[in-house]
Nucleic acid binder design. Sequence first.
DNA 1: TGTTGGATGTCGTGA
DNA 2: TCACGACGTCCAACA
Lengths: 231, 231
Amino acid sequence: MRLVVATCSVDYAGRLSAHLPLAPRVLMLKADGSILVHSDGGSYKPLNWMSPPATFEASEPDEEQRSVGVTEVWTVKHKKTGDSLIVSVHEVHADSSHELGVDPGLVKDGVEAHLQVLLAEQIERLGDGYELWRREYMTAIGPVDILARDAGGATVAVEIKRRGEIDGVEQLTRYLELLNRDPRIAPVTGVFAAQEIKPQARTLAEDRGIRCVVLDYDEMRGIDSGHARLF
Amino acid sequence: MRLVVATCSVDYAGRLSAHLPLAPRVLMLKADGSILVHSDGGSYKPLNWMSPPATFEASEPDEEQRSVGVTEVWTVKHKKTGDSLIVSVHEVHADSSHELGVDPGLVKDGVEAHLQVLLAEQIERLGDGYELWRREYMTAIGPVDILARDAGGATVAVEIKRRGEIDGVEQLTRYLELLNRDPRIAPVTGVFAAQEIKPQARTLAEDRGIRCVVLDYDEMRGIDSGHARLF
DNA sequence: TGTTGGATGTCGTGA
DNA sequence: TCACGACGTCCAACA
């Protein structure tokens, strides 16, 4: 990994053509030949980049380039698509290399999956007399997180999200439409359960007769791990 | 912009929970409080990150953290969603700050748009007797790049891409279906024009009776700019 | 190896 | 500010 802070301009040609005017930027050169061009702002997406596998080549500027202040030209080419990124380096402010080794990689904890397990165990949180019927009930358009029966024996479809937003309501709505076409389980009502439900999502859900339930993750975990103290 | 190379572990809690085990990594701290955690590989997406606007706070480790080798704890919190990223810094290998200023930003050249202008000017590239009828012809599902008339006066819908892939053929197919329902312009045939057409896209297009035309961008530009020499 | 659907998507644009 | 669609989407599971 090489980190360079330099005043440079950048040109990319691939799926589209793009140009970055002369300015100071951070250039991250990775071991696989890839390069990222970052400014001091924006999100994690670089201003411009070349993804691996790529070849990196540094060369001397020609006369015309040198006359406008270019001291070095970097040509980065994608090995498969041929996309090219050309960095015209003017002034280098810092340049360092570091040995990082192979990263052990990200571990995703899957809170949504955990919430589903917990709610399946604590289905009474939806109301007295509720009973778990199915988890991950498969339909033609995907699995319904939980199917339950309410105190009266009616079917309830539950969609679980960490953060309840509008697309989650849409998803549940699609499931409800489908499930209600199946005479074996219709009529089905919906419950939208999440740690946090956005006002827009709540409005949409309630407008469609879907009940919203806010789940307290820490409390549910507490009851789960400290199961003994209930007795 | 602060660049730190450090051996660290990282924990994120937001839409999901994620953990990065202890390893050497590059940490990019931006002026807006955002942070990127990069390894020496992968694409432009960091292993973990916090997007702006965010607050950054460095603090001393507690006894337990210190006992496992943590020398500093960074807490990065998203100002709106409350998502948090915690970096447990063990050993710092490099640490530097740089003043970059505001970046002038990316200029996209829009080769596809230019190709469309050029093809509109040089519509005879599709065949003798072709005449331009409309550009960016608006439909309910989006604008058709070019509508032309062939030598026999029949309508031709043209979809232009820099790289012709399968989704471009699908797009043109949708336009053709729609246009052919309009008795004022039906029947409409399709032309898929691109600098480069992938074999799969060509197969699909031809199977649907769509003609494929490969455009030579440099040649079209040459004819355009050197218009005078034709006379 | 191609295909498909999700993403801590991100990013623009128009209402 | 917010919903919608495109993206140099990227990415991983799956056929």
